[in-house]
Amino acid sequence: MKKIVLILGVLTIAAGFTSAPTSAQEPVAASPAVAWSSAALRHPTDWYGSAEARRLAAIVIQHQSAEGGWPKNTDLFVPPRPDADPALNNTIDNGGTTQPLAFLARTIAAGDAESRAAFDRGLDYLLAAQQPNGGWAQFYPLRGGYHDQITYNDDAMVHVMELLRDVGDGAAPYAFVDEGRRERARQAVARGVETLLKTQVRRDGVLTGWCAQHDAQTLAPAWARRFEPPSLSGQESVGIVRFLMSLPAPRPDVVAAVDGAVAWLESAALHDTTEVFVTDAQGRRDRILAPKPGARIWARFYDLEDGRPIYIGRDSIIRRDLMQIEHERRNGYRYVGEWPETLLIRDYPAWKATLHDRA
């Protein structure tokens, strides 16, 4: 019945738009992409040993803070501006710190000894940034407010743990890391895994997913920005599940966490529904939910109590209909997506098969 109500509501709303929907896979207007973020880790292996790669590595290092971190949303292939705020150069958000470390690791593995000291400082920064709760906050040193919460948002903590996992394993391109740091990385990952397990939300005693942020003290789901409420996340839960699935010889509690989250994601899908772009009555590009037989999508936020999708704009009022969110937020934030699809139809079944083979 809930699914029918959703689709009927979409049909009623969509009737007020003047043009046919287009694919929701089109690029969404957002912050302009920088050359750094799109190109840094995508070159052939041999390129990282080139003079050009070393020149760019030297510029990347110029952006490193005194504490050892790097900023987000910055073209690190361009020298930093003299008026850049150094307080913003210490984040794991949007690839901050983890991406530059991964880039420098590639040049070091290709023979760039001059970048080694900066890499070690950055790795030490990540290890120092792990909080007593086992998680990582968005910024370190801590800045207060929601920035200090355990940050799963946009896979920030997962990216840290992926890098530390590879460092601890001595995987390429991190084979050059000394054993002392590799051991610290392994210990940090182990503590992080415990935090992932502790923060998984149970509803009526059943394991479900995770919130995008969890309270640094209580580990409970927590607010972030005004339009990011305590909730179950249809996006961030996917990255956490994928990380847990990457662990070798997973313990029974890790397997249970993955199984519980996957079952919840299956149950949370919005069936026969898709996201499309349209032109509204004012001539603006807009996104709506529309019926599509056989399709399914997921909400970014689900109510912690009843498990239903919720939508919330800058007024921080929780709503049940995406079209009640202001146009600016509806088109500037991803409230729905297909994030779990490949996990559910391909990767999770393959992972379960490997567990069966090991048994």
Rank of each mutant, 00 (worst) to 15 (best):
S31H: 11
P32M: 05
P32H: 09
P32F: 04
P32T: 05
P32E: 07
P32A: 07
A33V: 01
A33D: 07
A33G: 02
A33P: 03
A33L: 11
V34E: 05
V34D: 14
V34P: 00
V34S: 13
V34L: 03
A35C: 04
A35I: 03
A35T: 10
A35R: 15
W36E: 04
W36Y: 15
W36A: 01
W36T: 00
S37R: 07
S37C: 01
S37N: 06
S37A: 12
S37Y: 05
S38C: 05
S38F: 01
A39F: 00
A39Q: 15
A39I: 00
A39N: 15
A40Y: 08
A40Q: 08
A40N: 14
L41C: 12
L41G: 11
L41Y: 10
L41A: 13
L41P: 13
L41S: 08
L41V: 01
R42Y: 09
R42W: 04
H43S: 06
H43V: 00
H43A: 12
H43L: 09
P44N: 12
P44L: 07
P44W: 02
T45Q: 15
T45P: 01
D46I: 01
D46Q: 14
D46G: 12
D46H: 10
D46F: 07
W47F: 14
W47V: 12
Y48S: 09
Y48A: 06
Y48G: 02
G49F: 02
S50D: 05
S50N: 10
S50P: 08
A51Y: 00
A51T: 14
E52K: 13
E52G: 07
E52F: 00
E52R: 09
E52D: 15
A53R: 13
A53I: 04
A53S: 14
A53C: 14
R54V: 02
R55Y: 02
L56P: 03
L56A: 05
L56R: 15
L56N: 02
L56S: 03
A57K: 03
A57T: 08
A57E: 07
A58N: 08
I59K: 07
I59G: 10
I59D: 12
V60Q: 06
I61R: 05
I61F: 09
Q62C: 02
Q62S: 12
H63T: 13
H63P: 11
H63A: 07
H63I: 06
Q64T: 06
Q64C: 07
S65H: 07
S65K: 04
S65D: 05
S65M: 06
S65C: 10
